[in-house]
Amino acid sequence: MNGDEVAIRELLAQQVAGWNTGDPAAYAAVFAPDADYITFLGAHHRGRAAISASYAPLFANLLRGSRLEVEVTGLRFLTSDVALIHARAVVTRSSGRRSRGERVNTSVAVRTGDGWLLAASQNTTHRLLAQRLMRTLFYRHSGGSLA
């Protein structure tokens, strides 16, 4: 693992630590000041300040005491200063119950004068049941052959 990959993984660990302490500013600090962030519900927040502001009420209420777990499933350098990151994330509520499913995350990290920061990030809920249904429908529609 090279130094840039280590730095990006540390950046994600910093983001997780911000979540796990319920600190919206720390959670958002990993984003570039002009970053784009799409939530799993499709909301689009532009900029670190907007990302932080969007998490303040969540950490104060719905996500209070929750824990975030992130597993990097892919990290590829598109250039020496731009990296594409794929990850899986799960939120565990304070009750110990997992939230309604795994999230699939795609982020773009860029090297800045302040080190690596996330320029863009999008979360999608992994819906296993819907995925299975789509495979079944595709299988039936394709005459029984899974391409």
Rank of each mutant, 00 (worst) to 15 (best):
S95Q: 09
R9I: 03
F40D: 02
S107I: 05
E71M: 07
V82C: 06
L118S: 04
V30R: 07
R132K: 03
G113W: 06
A28D: 06
L84I: 02
R46V: 14
L58M: 14
R64L: 11
A50L: 05
L146Y: 11
S80W: 09
V72Y: 00
L75Y: 01
S145Q: 14
L133S: 00
F59D: 09
D81H: 14
A60L: 10
E10I: 02
S52P: 00
T79D: 13
G47F: 04
S54D: 13
G22N: 02
A56K: 00
L137Q: 08
L133P: 01
E69A: 12
V90S: 13
A29E: 12
A56D: 06
R46L: 12
I38C: 11
W116P: 02
G113C: 05
A28H: 08
S94P: 01
S99V: 07
A49C: 05
V91E: 10
S95M: 11
A89R: 02
R67G: 04
S107Y: 06
T92E: 08
V90H: 04
R140D: 09
A87V: 00
A130R: 13
V104C: 02
R9S: 14
V91H: 12
A43V: 10
R135S: 13
G96M: 12
L68D: 08
Y139L: 08
G101W: 02
E102D: 07
L41K: 13
D34G: 00
N20K: 11
G113R: 14
L133V: 09
A147F: 08
R64H: 14
N123H: 09
A50M: 11
T79Q: 11
R9H: 11
D23P: 08
I85P: 03
F77G: 03
N2V: 02
L128M: 07
P33Q: 10
W116K: 06
L128D: 00
A130M: 09
R98A: 08
R127S: 06
V72P: 01
L63Q: 11
R76G: 06
T124C: 08
P24W: 03
S66G: 15
N105D: 07
T39V: 10
G3E: 15
Q131A: 12
F40I: 02
E71C: 03
G115H: 12
S95K: 10
I85W: 09
T112N: 10
R64F: 08
L118T: 04
T136A: 13
R140E: 07
A32W: 00
A17R: 15
N2C: 13
V72H: 06
D4S: 15
S107D: 12
F59R: 12
H45C: 07
L63M: 15
I38P: 04
F40N: 06
D4W: 05
Y27P: 00
H86N: 13
S94M: 05
A29W: 07
L84D: 08
A60S: 13
E69S: 12
G96F: 09
Q122R: 10
Q15H: 15
S54L: 07
A28W: 05
A28G: 07
R98G: 02
G143T: 01
H86G: 10
E69R: 13
A17M: 11
Y27S: 01
H86W: 11
F31E: 00
A147I: 07
G47N: 11
S107F: 03
H45V: 05
V70C: 09
